[in-house]
């Protein structure tokens, strides 16, 4: 069954006519062409599909768009402001926190949610916030380092993002 859906993604409202049983992940990737959000397991186990709904991390593979109408969805494509990268994006690239890159979008969005609510998180806070995002490449070291770098920029006011 299809229905009309109003979904606000990365600051833009989309009117969609799509199957109501489709997950947010499917709608983002297939209907909106936002393929930066990844399928890892489709069971809410890996965190690769993490996006933000009103700033809170949710798993797009378990979310139904019909329930998210009126909420502000942020995906990896919505992190940068125009051509200006979000500090997390810059730090992930410069510090080699993205190896294969498959967990990267979800990882950065979980980190963004943390940094938006906690200006000066401890290493433990970061570990807690990102524990639901699996990464098989990095051993998490460089990811931790990247998030800490942005946190310290943020707390010393260096960051523009």
């Amino acid at each position: 069954m299809k229905s009309i859906l109003h979904l606000r993604v990365n600051g833009q409202t989309h009117e969609l006519y799509t199957d109501t049983h489709k997950t947010l992940l499917e709608v983002l990737r297939e209907d909106l062409g936002l393929t930066g959000t990844k399928h890892g397991c489709d069971l809410g186990e890996c965190g690769a599909c993490t996006v933000l709904a009103d700033g809170t991390p949710i798993l797009a593979c378990l979310a139904l768009p019909i329930e998210l109408q009126g909420r502000e969805i942020t995906t990896v494509e919505g992190l940068a402001r125009g051509a200006e990268l979000h500090p997390l994006q810059r730090a992930f690239a410069e510090l080699n926190a993205a190896q294969c890159g498959y967990c990267t979008a979800g990882m950065m969005l979980s980190a963004k949610a943390l940094l938006d609510r906690e200006k000066n998180p401890t290493r433990e806070d970061i570990r807690d916030a990102l524990a639901g995002n699996l990464c098989r490449c990095t051993g998490y070291e460089k990811i931790l380092e990247a998030v800490e770098t942005v946190a310290s920029q943020q707390s010393t006011g260096e960051s523009k993002g």
Partner: peptide, 15 residues
Amino acid sequence: AKIDSWDKVIGAAKY
């Protein structure tokens, strides 16, 4: 930085 990291952090890398 790796040269392909930039595409990965903006979600543009095509798997």
